[in-house]
Simulated scan of single mutants.
Amino acid sequence: MLIIRPIETNDYPALYQIAQDSGIGFTSLPVNEELLKNKIAESIKAFNSNPQRAGEQSYLLVMEDTQTGEVVGTSGIEATVGLQDAFYHYHVGKVVHASRELNVHNTVDILTFCNDYSGVSEICTLFLQEKARKGLAGRLLSKCRFLFMAQHQQRFADIVIAEMRGVSDERGKSPFWEWLEDHFFSVDFPTADYLTGIGNKVFIAELMPKYPIYVNLLSKAAQNCIGQVHDKTLPALRMLEKEGFKCRGYVDIFDAGPTVEADVSNIATVRQSHEASVEISTNTELDDCDEHFIINSEVASFRACIGRIKILDNNKVAISEKLAKALLVKEGATIRYAHNSLQHY
């Protein structure tokens, strides 16, 4: 069985391997021992905190195969972004150059440097090892975050975003960054990406052009990258779009990948989720029941998995002993669940 749980100190080797496997452009997991260990420590601190409003907590989850004990994926939530360190984006807008006298009217796209998403929550760090990319594993890794946010709303902002990896090749070559590098930075994309991942963002403020950039002045290759995602990121983007996430014209300052956003209360999994108290059953009829994405109602001992439940009267559900054990719940405990409906996919 695959379960989702908070990361632990002894998960460091697995997290380091994931950081290596995720490749260039996966900014939230740079291959840096000190930073990765700090991420684990900050996550443990967050899961043991009791905030009454969204703060600077950073929650990092791992997917574990209970048969082997192996960690095969990660998924994370930042309670807020941009409150301590600047959080940069480009916003794609338009300006009009017009002259009645000359009968000229030109609309031009521009990129404006901004910090508009400061204070929102962010889902991030989703990576699933290739050997585990089957069945519902990817959806569980994504959806468990929405169920956690629904269950513990006071810990998060009303708006949540996701930064999608933009276009780059296997060597980390980004056409969009190449243009910026040539004109402003003189630092290649892997280096810039790594520096940002370890929290060194000062160079961005120092070197990034402060005035809007006219898109038509960029190279054609750079223009074509704006708002586009990496091939390996496309399934994740499609999944988020089905949940109700939309791009409002904000793109990453390094690779121009889109940032998508949603009101937490309008996310499909949140809207369609339900709370219920548990009855533990040995009834084999559960084998014929539908599969659901399920979480317990805990924080420090959070668990999520996929399982079959039988919906009963009086806001109760029946689950198997095996599922109760995986979720760390006892008779009468509260769970939150969302149906594995294919209608949104």
Rank of each mutant, 00 (worst) to 15 (best):
74 T>I: 06
293 F>T: 08
276 A>Q: 01
179 W>R: 00
98 A>S: 13
256 A>I: 03
160 V>D: 04
205 A>G: 14
237 L>M: 04
217 L>R: 04
277 S>M: 13
309 I>P: 00
106 N>R: 15
278 V>F: 00
332 G>Y: 14
18 I>V: 15
335 I>T: 04
173 K>R: 14
83 L>M: 12
81 V>F: 01
338 A>E: 05
104 V>D: 11
215 V>R: 01
94 K>S: 13
116 D>C: 03
8 E>L: 12
243 E>I: 03
325 K>G: 11
52 Q>N: 12
226 I>A: 01
113 F>W: 10
17 Q>W: 15
209 P>M: 06
88 Y>G: 02
46 A>R: 07
100 R>G: 11
36 L>P: 15
78 E>C: 14
216 N>W: 11
4 I>H: 01
185 F>I: 08
132 A>V: 03
306 I>F: 01
337 Y>P: 02
136 L>M: 10
198 I>V: 11
156 F>H: 09
284 T>E: 14
121 S>A: 06
75 S>V: 04
158 D>N: 10
100 R>P: 14
312 L>A: 03
269 T>H: 04
198 I>R: 08
65 D>R: 02
246 K>R: 13
266 N>T: 13
76 G>M: 08
80 T>I: 08
307 G>N: 02
115 N>A: 07
16 Y>Q: 13
262 A>N: 10
193 D>Y: 08
69 G>H: 06
68 T>V: 03
21 D>I: 15
83 L>R: 15
133 R>V: 04
203 F>D: 10
307 G>W: 01
285 E>D: 12
136 L>A: 09
21 D>L: 14
194 Y>G: 07
52 Q>Y: 13
28 S>P: 11
335 I>K: 06
245 F>E: 01
65 D>Q: 05
286 L>R: 04
111 L>W: 08
26 F>M: 09
57 Q>N: 14
283 N>D: 12
202 V>N: 15
1 M>N: 06
137 A>I: 12
200 N>I: 14
341 S>G: 07
295 I>T: 01
102 L>S: 13
340 N>D: 12
244 G>M: 02
152 H>K: 02
114 C>F: 13
321 E>G: 08
183 H>I: 05
293 F>M: 04
55 G>C: 09
190 P>V: 01
283 N>C: 09
173 K>D: 12
